[in-house]
Design a binder for these strands. Sequence first.
DNA 1: TTCAAATATTCTAAAAATCGAATATACTTA
DNA 2: TAAGTATATTCGATTTTTAGAATATTTGAA
Lengths: 120, 120
Amino acid sequence: MQNALQRFKADIFQALAHPTRIAIVEILREDEVSAGAILERLGVEQANASQHLAVLRARQIVVNRKEGNQVFYSLRSHRLTEVLDIMRLYFEEHLSEVTEMLTEIRLQASPSDVSPEEEQ
Amino acid sequence: MQNALQRFKADIFQALAHPTRIAIVEILREDEVSAGAILERLGVEQANASQHLAVLRARQIVVNRKEGNQVFYSLRSHRLTEVLDIMRLYFEEHLSEVTEMLTEIRLQASPSDVSPEEEQ
DNA sequence: TTCAAATATTCTAAAAATCGAATATACTTA
DNA sequence: TAAGTATATTCGATTTTTAGAATATTTGAA
């Protein structure tokens, strides 16, 4: 059972391990959105968007509903948006660490200027 | 910037997208642990464990400290353990949905048996 | 019907991830 | 210094992921 949980987590993370799929989940954060509208916002090839949606569907991260001509997607659970929110915090913390580090480097190197390649 | 954040998230998820690496992060949840001890608990090849640790290091998910002969690993931030906790909830919710679904199927099909292909 | 729109699937080539085997590096101790 | 222990890296083969092109499927409308 222990392993099953780890495999499950790894599978979900794998499904989220692509910027386009992150973008899709974020598009679906609030409402249900049609495949066409998702495609439009992503700005990628239709087939490609559809493949990424298929990955998310396979892992049951998204759910879809057919209405006439269109297919509307939505998140199956909002747990994953919690996860994305934490990731944003993590990113921001990470960022501030990096900038703190750079500030320290600059202070050590003062008073003369920091060369361009040390910025980031 | 929007895209940078999405790429960042995807990168972190990619780093976590393997059961062995999930296991490593969970081993490090509480304390700092030596590479050898991690290896022992994982039960994989030494080289393989080291490769997975390298992936986690590259993404700065873990941090290491050298002490004599050994290398001690720890989590750089505890945000990711929050993420793993949410994933456990998500898994449990997922599980109960599946079992509820199976129960419904059984109730609908009662009293006679369900034929194999009618199961999800 | 026939056509067009929305979406999904299949195919193929290229890139990336994974594993174990072999090897390298860095310490420690004899 | 030489040998041993702990850990990391490189290499080669295999598998998986990815993107775009082409094609298929489903549905609504003429």
